[in-house]
Amino acid sequence: MAQSQGWMKRYVKAFCKGFFVAVPMAVTFLDRVACVARVEGASMQPCLNPGGSQSSDVVLLNHWKARNFEVQRGDIVSLVSPKNPEQKIIKRVIALEGDIVKTMGHKNRYVRVPRGHIWVEGDHHGHSFDSNSFGPISLGLLHAHATHILWPPERWQKLESVLPPERLPVWNEED
């Protein structure tokens, strides 16, 4: 009996040591490096959730890539919603700071994206709550880059940074 209690005590001690090392490491990894997220809704169709309401893609979100606010036109990014800070949204970057973009339903026909901001839109126009609704979004709300579709298995792929030709900025500072 005493021998089994000694074994149990060693087991609990080893478990606690492992737990108190593994949990902070896992939290740090998920907060600073990468995590996964389920994409809901039709705003990014056909790129994400092409099956409509019957499917939800699961994507890999790379926090590391977003830590210096390095984004390019065409990137799919996760952002803190400017209307509801408890919600994350996923959209495509259409324009960067300094670009002039032709809007789709915004109060102004053309918008110059201010410094420290980006213009984001969903791929499914008319079914997306995006910059056309709330304007340019601060880079401070950038959460992560979506880099891969992980689920469902038949859709496993790397997400490409592709900007639809009809959504190119009217003018950008590189011109």
Rank of each mutant, 00 (worst) to 15 (best):
K9Y: 13
M1A: 13
N68D: 14
P169V: 11
L150M: 14
H143G: 07
S138K: 11
C35L: 04
S55Q: 15
P50I: 08
H127C: 07
S131D: 13
Q45M: 12
K83A: 15
R115I: 02
L163T: 11
V101S: 05
A146T: 09
V36F: 10
F134V: 15
A95I: 11
D99M: 04
N132A: 05
N62H: 11
R10H: 01
I137L: 12
C47A: 11
R38M: 11
G105H: 06
P46D: 07
V120M: 05
K107V: 12
L96R: 10
E160K: 15
I94G: 00
G74E: 07
D75I: 13
G126T: 09
F29E: 01
H63D: 00
D130A: 01
P46N: 03
N62L: 07
S138R: 12
E97M: 10
A37W: 08
N62A: 03
L163M: 10
H106W: 14
V71W: 02
E173A: 05
L163Y: 10
R115V: 08
S53Y: 10
F69W: 14
V58Q: 03
Q5F: 13
A14T: 15
D31M: 09
L61W: 02
P165R: 06
N108H: 13
N172I: 02
Q157S: 14
V27S: 10
K91L: 09
R32I: 01
M104G: 00
D31T: 14
L141G: 00
H127I: 00
Y110P: 02
F20N: 02
G140L: 09
Q54P: 01
S81D: 14
V113S: 05
K17C: 10
R67S: 13
M44V: 09
A144W: 02
S138M: 01
D31I: 02
L150T: 07
E166N: 10
F129R: 14
H127D: 12
S53V: 14
K88T: 04
R115M: 06
M8W: 12
V120E: 01
S43Y: 05
R112G: 03
I100N: 00
N172W: 13
S56F: 01
K88L: 15
I89C: 12
P82Q: 08
A42H: 11
D99L: 02
